[in-house]
């Protein structure tokens, strides 16, 4: 029975797992580009989480259909919210990459432990 619940909530597990993975990558990887990739994994995990929250079992796309009076629609709101989230993620990635380029010009490397040695 537990296995069944696990299977039913499988997307949640994937989301939580990749969130933890992304956070771990940001905090532990020395390479700055990998850190940015970690941020992206983390954010994608959150997007996945929201989209599952909006899902309804046997739901149909949320476009009003007069021929089906008692249809169940999926919840479109979380997906719409994630459009904003994607834009934010994009801008953060762009900004972080720009800063990394600038640091590369200063240090000649993108591995953060090397910064300490160079100071």
């Amino acid at each position: 029975m537990n296995l069944q619940i696990m299977l039913l909530n499988f997307p949640y597990l994937v989301s939580i797992f990749s969130f933890c993975m992304g956070t771990l990558i940001v905090l532990t990887q020395p390479n700055l580009i990998k850190k940015v990739i970690g941020v992206n994994i983390m954010q994608s995990a959150i997007f996945l989480f929201y989209i599952i929250v909006g899902d309804v079992q046997e739901g149909i796309p949320p476009i009003y259909d007069p021929t089906l009076p008692d249809a169940i629609y999926v919840n479109p709101l979380p997906s719409c919210l994630m459009l904003t989230g994607i834009v934010v993620g994009f801008s953060i990635t762009a900004f972080a990459l720009a800063l990394i380029v600038k640091l590369y010009l200063y240090y000649g490397t993108i591995s953060s432990p090397n910064f300490m040695k160079m100071k």
Binding site: F19, G22, T23, V26, L27, K35, V36, V39, M42, Q43, I46, V88, I92, F95, A96, L99
Partner: peptide, 10 residues
């Protein structure tokens, strides 16, 4: 700041 703040907002 950017990376840690992004973790925070996540």
């Amino acid at each position: 700041y950017l990376l840690l703040a992004t973790i925070g907002s996540g």
